[in-house]
Amino acid sequence: MSTAHTGGIDTGERRRSGDGRPVITDLIDEPTVQSIVEDAWVALVGEDEVLIPLAGEPIGDVVSAWVDVVGPWTGSVVLTTGRQTAAELTRALLAESSPELLEDEDVADAFGEIANVVGGNVKAALPGSSALSLPEVGEAPAVRNPEDVVRLDVLWRGQPLSISAQGALPPLPVPHPPPGGQSPHENGASL
C-alpha cells in the first residue's frame, strides 16, 4: 500500500491509518453497530424487546461474551452486562424451553450466541476478508487502543448492556517530529 502522503495537511485519518492498519472507527460507525444489535435483539430476544440508547449506572458483577475478528482489522466484538441480565437474556432466548433452574452453561451458550450473531454481522460489514472465532464468555479482553473502539451503551429492561468493537492491537508509536520542526499535529500524542 502506498505511503506517499508524507507532508501537507494532517487529515486526522492519516494519523489513524497512515500505515495501512485501519482502526475500527475508519470502518464502521455507531449507527451501523446499533442497527446490527437491534436486528439481533428483535430476532433472538423478542419482537417487543427494545434497547434504549442510554448508559446505565456501572455495575460490579458483570460478564462478557465476545467473538474475535481477524483480518484487515483485528479485534473483538464484545457484549458486557450484569450476570443477572445475562441470565434473563438466556431465558428470553430459550422462551418456552427455558428450564426452571438455569445452568451457567446455558447462560454461556445463549450470551455467546448473541455475541456470535452480532460479531458475525459486524464482520460482514467490514471491508475485505476476515475470519470469525467461536464465541467466548468470561472477562472481556482489555481495550488496547482507546481510539480503536466503537462502543454502544444501551438499557435492556432497564439494565445496562454495552456492545463494543475493540481493536486487539496497541496504538502505533507516534512518529517523532522532524528535527527543528514542529509536530504536524498538536493532539497526536498517544492517549
Binding site: L44, L93, A95, D109, G112, E113, N116
Partner: peptide
Amino acid sequence: SRVMRQIVIR
C-alpha cells in the same frame, strides 16, 4: 449452540 438449535427448531 444448544440454544441456537432450539431457536432453529422453533
